[in-house]
Amino acid sequence: MAYDKFNTLRSTAVPLPIENVDTDQLIPARFLKATERVGFGDNLFRDWRYNADNTPKKDFVLNNNIYSGKILVGGKNFGSGSSREHAAWAVYDYGFRCVVSSFFADIFRNNCLNVGVLPVQVSPEFSEKIFAAIHADPTTELEVNLPDQTITLVATGEKDTFEISPYKKDNMINGFDDIDYLQSIKPEIEVFASNLPL
């Protein structure tokens, strides 16, 4: 599914300094029953964000209006557990274009790249710096530069670099997806399939 191209992003950020945030928290299973990709943002972090009676939980960061922005900063091992792409859809649909963490779970990272959310893995030290800066000043801005593969604390100029494969980087910058590529090599795939051991 098409997503908006990503080049550079300058934004305030929402801090979630919890480790091992799993995709069941990002979107609980009972909200996976749609047959279309619509409305998942409403249920992002559903059970951390709302009480059982659907009133907002005041102490959860998404309900605290001093924090906002297109960047979500999570703790270590972000996105573990279930392969549900709905978790990445919920992140995107809520309005985040970038998730920052010192460590990502594999499948979530892959899913993000496939739906237009940029996973930015920074060093544990830089992650701490970001959390401290936002804690001190919720209007702290971050700048994510995909072509240069850097993330910068705008106020101080402190920066870190992040990894992304040249292929995926090109896709994100141009809004392409893997199916476009795979479709283009279909004849090669069909020849390959006819020569398999099984």
Binding site: S83, N110, D178
Partner: peptide, 22 residues
Amino acid sequence: FGIGTSEVEMVLATQCIMQPKP
């Protein structure tokens, strides 16, 4: 291994997915 829905679509369409080797 488990995959996301975009990759389910890839497999249906082309019987392939794109993965860095772990």
